[in-house]
């Protein structure tokens, strides 16, 4: 059992990721409060997999997640719009390639 004394003084926020089936990715589904990782996992199980939603769970301390800022979205995301060469449709396929 993971005992991290710095987190046992009070509840912290944990983000919960559930994998619904084998072969697909873990998807973020919500958060729980818990004093440590083990109890966060148990709380996540009780809150998010009660109706057979998952085969695997991740809990991640919310404080460990680095978030992009909304005001940065122009700088981060917009330059991709006019770079058509990043899309497969930009390229002409040689006739020799039959199935693509």
């Amino acid at each position: 059992m993971g005992h991290d004394p710095t987190t046992e003084t009070g509840d912290q926020l944990w983000e919960v990721f559930v994998r619904a089936r084998r072969g697909i990715d873990h998807v973020h589904c919500g958060s729980v409060h818990a004093p440590d990782a083990e109890l966060a996992l148990q709380a996540a199980r009780d809150l998010y997999t009660r109706r057979n939603e998952g085969v695997s769970l991740w809990v991640v301390p919310a404080s460990a997640i680095v978030v992009s800022e909304p005001e940065d979205s122009d700088a981060l995301f917009e330059p991709s719009v006019d770079k058509t060469y990043r899309y497969p449709t930009y390229y002409d396929l040689p006739d020799a390639v039959a199935k693509m």
């Binding site: 509840d11 729980v32 409060h33 818990a34 148990q42 709380a43 009780d46 809150l47 009660r50």
Partner: peptide, 11 residues
């Protein structure tokens, strides 16, 4: 004590 524990005990 917490909402999470409420759910756990009910479960």
């Amino acid at each position: 004590p917490t909402m999470e524990e409420d759910m756990a005990l009910a479960n």
